[in-house]
C-alpha cells in the first residue's frame, strides 16, 4: 500500500465530503409531494464520506509502509500520449473527426514505439476514415466532418 497516496486521497475525499455537505445545505429542503427534500440524500452521504475518509486517514497512521516499489514509470510516454489525447478531445469539434483522429493515432503509435512510419500512417488513416465512413455514411450518425476552411466539402 502506498501510504502517501492514501493520506492525500483521504484528505481529498474529506474535502469532497465537506464540500457536498456545505453545498447541499444550499439546496431547498422542501419538495412538493415529498416528505424528504432533495438535500437529505447528498447531505447524509457527505457525512458518511467524511467519517470514512477520517477512518482512512487514521489507518494510514497505523500501518507500516510496506515495500517501496518504485519501478520506474514511463512518465514521458504517458505525458505525450495524454497531452495528445487532451488536445485531440479539445479540438475534435474544430478540426473534424478524421483529421484529429488521424493525427492523434499517428502521434500515439510513434510515441509507443518509433519506426515503421508507413504502417502507422496506413493504420491511422484506415481507422479514422473507416470509422467516419461507417458511422456517418452507412449508419447515418453524426460526427464533425472535415474542417470547412479546407474548402473540400
Amino acid at each position: 500500500m502506498n501510504k502517501t497516496f492514501d493520506r492525500y486521497a483521504s484528505i481529498a475525499f474529506l474535502a469532497i465530503g465537506i464540500l457536498f455537505i456545505i453545498e447541499s445545505r444550499k439546496i431547498t429542503a422542501s419538495a412538493y409531494g415529498s416528505e424528504v427534500g432533495p438535500n437529505i440524500f447528498p447531505l447524509g452521504l457527505g457525512l458518511v464520506l467524511v467519517v470514512l475518509s477520517l477512518r482512512l486517514l487514521y489507518e494510514t497512521f497505523k500501518y507500516q509502509q510496506t515495500e517501496k516499489r518504485r519501478s520506474s514509470l514511463d512518465y514521458k510516454r504517458f505525458g505525450i500520449i495524454f497531452v495528445a489525447a487532451f488536445v485531440y478531445c479539445y479540438f475534435l469539434e474544430d478540426i473534424g473527426y478524421v483529421l484529429s483522429t488521424f493525427l492523434f493515432l499517428l502521434i500515439g503509435f510513434q510515441t509507443m514505439q518509433q519506426g515503421k512510419i508507413w504502417s502507422s500512417i496506413l493504420i491511422s488513416g484506415g481507422f479514422s476514415f473507416g470509422v467516419y465512413y461507417l458511422f456517418v455514411e452507412v449508419l447515418k450518425g453524426s460526427l464533425p466532418g472535415l474542417p470547412t476552411w479546407l474548402g473540400l466539402s
Binding site: 483522429t101 500515439g108 503509435f109 514505439q113 493504420i123 481507422f127 479514422s128 460526427l143
Partner: peptide
Amino acid sequence: KYLIPLIVAFSVFGVY
C-alpha cells in the same frame, strides 16, 4: 504499439 492508441481513439469515438 497499435492496440493502446486505438483503444483511446475508440473510447473517444464511443463517448462522442
